[in-house]
Computed example of a mutant assay.
Amino acid sequence: MTENITIFTWVTVCCWVLFCSYWLLLRNKTLKNIQGRTARQRYLGTLGYVLIFTLLYLPLFVHGGFAGRIIPAHYLLQGIGALICMAGVGVCIWSRTILGRNWSGGVTAKQGHELIVEGPYRLVRHPIYSGFLTALAGTCLVTGGLAAIIVTCIYTLALCLKINDEEVLLRDVFPGTYEIYQQQTRKLIPFIW
């Protein structure tokens, strides 16, 4: 087991601890939701993150099968993965900082909601998601597990559905303005999509 845990593994763990700590620090520093999240929604959100992180790091503790490593534990791949994870978490934190009090864990409008179009929001409409998916992909390169890759793919699909819901909400909250913003920026990947 310990031979699977490299410096690159620790780099990704530190990145995710930083990510989670920053989100916890700012969780109550947001504008009031117009429609609050239910206890069930909060519980399922937390459970989702526990599941994601468990499956990301499972190959370090379980060998073979669904949990086993399918990406070789090569130092170059792991180093690239750690750098990608660091970049992704950095984008998440930068984006969350710029979004400020307008952030919400669910798809909901805020009282006094503002449309943020600066910083990373000049390039993509959902940079927190872009950064999170980037960090997940980097972590997959480091841990190399089939389960990690599958959960990352499933999470990406679920996130695309959430983005569609968010964009409908934002078009309603910022009629006309959000459509112009959509035409000027990409959804998740700068200059591409």
Rank of each mutant, 00 (worst) to 15 (best):
Q35P: 03
H113D: 07
F19E: 08
L170P: 03
I163A: 09
I93D: 05
I7V: 07
L26G: 11
W94Y: 07
Q182N: 05
R69K: 10
T156M: 14
C14S: 06
G144H: 14
V50G: 02
K162P: 15
Q35F: 11
T46H: 11
K32S: 01
N4M: 06
G138T: 07
T97V: 09
K162E: 08
G176A: 08
S104G: 14
L159T: 13
I80F: 01
F66I: 12
I180Q: 13
I192E: 09
N102K: 01
A137Y: 02
C160D: 10
R40M: 13
L77K: 01
W10K: 03
V107M: 05
V13L: 15
W10M: 15
F19T: 00
F61A: 09
A73T: 02
E114L: 14
V50F: 15
L26T: 15
Q182D: 02
S130C: 13
S130H: 01
V17D: 03
I98Y: 06
I52W: 11
Q184V: 07
G64Y: 01
P120W: 05
W16G: 03
V91H: 03
T97W: 05
R125T: 08
R171I: 06
S21A: 14
K162I: 09
L159S: 12
A148E: 11
E167C: 13
Y178I: 12
C20P: 09
W16E: 00
S130W: 04
G106P: 13
L161W: 13
L31Q: 04
G112Y: 04
L169V: 04
Y75L: 10
R125K: 04
K187H: 07
T30F: 02
Q41D: 07
S21P: 08
L83V: 14
Y43V: 01
C140Y: 01
G68S: 08
V91W: 02
V91F: 01
F19R: 06
I34K: 12
L76S: 07
Q182Y: 09
H113L: 04
T9H: 07
G68W: 12
I71K: 01
I70T: 02
L55W: 12
L141D: 00
E118Y: 05
H63W: 11
V151L: 14
T185F: 09
C160Q: 12
A87P: 00
P120I: 00
L169S: 12
V151R: 07
N33M: 13
G105R: 07
L159D: 06
T54I: 03
L58H: 00
Y75M: 14
T38P: 08
H74V: 10
N28R: 10
A137S: 07
S21V: 13
G144K: 00
W23E: 12
N102H: 07
Y43K: 08
Q78P: 03
A73I: 00
V17W: 10
L44S: 13
I70M: 05
D172R: 15
P59G: 03
V168Y: 11
I52P: 09
V173A: 15
G65W: 05
T177R: 15
F61Q: 00
F132N: 09
L133E: 10
R37H: 06
A82H: 02
L44G: 10
P190K: 11
E118H: 12
T12R: 13
G88Y: 06
A67G: 14
L56P: 10
I154M: 04
P59W: 01
L141M: 11
T54D: 05
G36H: 14
V13W: 05
T54C: 04
H113C: 04
R37D: 11
L25I: 11
Q182I: 11
L123P: 04
I93M: 06
A135C: 02
W23F: 11
